[in-house]
């Protein structure tokens, strides 16, 4: 084991951050889903590198699950959903791209200052922690931001999934993966959530002829 593995992890983590930003800046729903898939593949690669570099073999299951569920399964479900509901393929923003990007830039800086005490509290700080943890927190925050700032329910699903990717990444960075059972739980959670949300979106669309979640306000009465 040499410098290559930490270096590659570093590179991939940055790439994951960039894909998150691209998700924020992109305008087409299909592109959204593809970017998410790409992000999940890179996440799987990071996990694989942790297996190779640090010998944490139990993560192997997570690697396989990540690739199967997030990189392939969910994207297929979502793109079929987008095809089925025939909504305009452009994304509605409640906050425009420029300002979104600015906000996300500040979220990264915020995430970094949040991660600072965690990093310095740890006895040994490896590259895994110092570099990946701030990025994972940023990915979580940006995921949440996507959920709050985009109108369509589909984009809100992607936001949720992005957030989950961030959680997974932070798990990898701090503890080299959470206990198996937790991982599995999360995976099925996410899968089920995506499916249920998908069905939900489909229903909303059938009822309101739109997937704009703003119309849900009408349910108040």
């Amino acid at each position: 084991m040499d410098q290559t593995v930490p270096y590659l992890i570093d590179l991939l983590a940055a790439a994951i951050l960039v894909t998150t930003f691209l998700i924020v800046s992109s305008r087409s729903l299909i592109f959204y889903v593809r970017l998410f898939s790409l992000q999940s593949i890179m996440l799987g690669a990071v996990a694989l590198l942790v297996v190779i570099g640090y010998g944490e073999t139990h993560i192997l299951v997570s690697v396989v699950l990540t690739l199967l569920v997030k990189a392939v399964g969910i994207p297929i479900v979502l793109s079929r959903l987008i095809d089925r509901i025939k909504v305009p393929k452009e994304i509605d923003f409640s906050v425009n791209t420029t300002i979104s990007l600015l906000v996300c830039g500040f979220l990264v800086i915020l995430a970094n200052s949040v991660a600072e005490p965690i990093i310095s509290s740890r006895p040994v700080s490896t590259a895994m922690v110092t570099k990946v943890l701030p990025i994972s927190i940023s990915v979580m925050l940006i995921g949440l931001f996507i959920m709050t700032s985009r109108r369509k329910a589909v984009t809100q699903i992607i936001g949720l999934l992005t957030m989950e990717n961030g959680v997974f990444l932070s798990g990898l960075s701090i503890t080299s993966g959470m206990p198996m059972i937790v991982e599995l739980g999360i995976f099925f959670d996410i899968l089920v959530a995506a499916l249920i949300l998908g069905v939900f979106v489909f229903r909303i669309n059938r009822t309101f002829e739109t997937v704009d979640s703003d119309t849900l306000r009408r349910l108040r009465h």
Binding site: F21, S25, L101, L102, C104, G105, V108
Partner: peptide, 8 residues
């Protein structure tokens, strides 16, 4: 995007 990439 260019600005944010540079900031990142």
């Amino acid at each position: 995007v260019a600005f944010t990439l540079s900031l990142l």
